[in-house]
Amino acid sequence: MKDGLALHLEALWRYGLVLSRNRDTAEDLVQATCVRALERAEQFAPGTRLDRWLFAILRSIWLNELRARRVRQGSGVVDAEVALVFEGSEAIETNILAAQVLSEIGRMAEAQRETVLLVYGEGFSYREAADLLGVPIGTIMSRLAAIREKLSPLADMSRQPAPRGKRGDDV
């Protein structure tokens, strides 16, 4: 289990970051996932994909942790969703389009963020993504269509040199 975990740490971190949009929380999620996977190693079915199993663990921890935070806020109201930018994206100077795409994804709803990560980041089939998220395949398809629609203007813009100051609008 330890060796298997080592192979998937970066993928787990990325999933945690996409869900939480916070680096500290992403690391906490990786840590909690490692501990739980070690504890439950005997529940992993050999011959199935370890990364899928680990993702399901991380997701259930995230949902539980999210709920705990709402309790602390005392109201059950979702965090004010200001336009969040991935903390890492500012540093990606080598690929402006990638930074813009990440920034745009960072502003999407959680369900869209994790769907785009699973299918286009991790290569989940629609069926696998639907199973993990507990939604019908049709929902995966509509989410991906909405995501592509939102991102399509970025690809158009990136063909023309964009003034650098423009990225300030995203903050």
Partner: peptide
């Protein structure tokens, strides 16, 4: 929609590279 998907895989790879 094809254009909308164009940058996603790269963006995801960039993100993972920053782990």
């Amino acid at each position: 929609l094809d254009r909308g998907g164009a940058g996603i895989a790269d963006a995801m790879a960039e993100l993972k590279a920053r782990a």
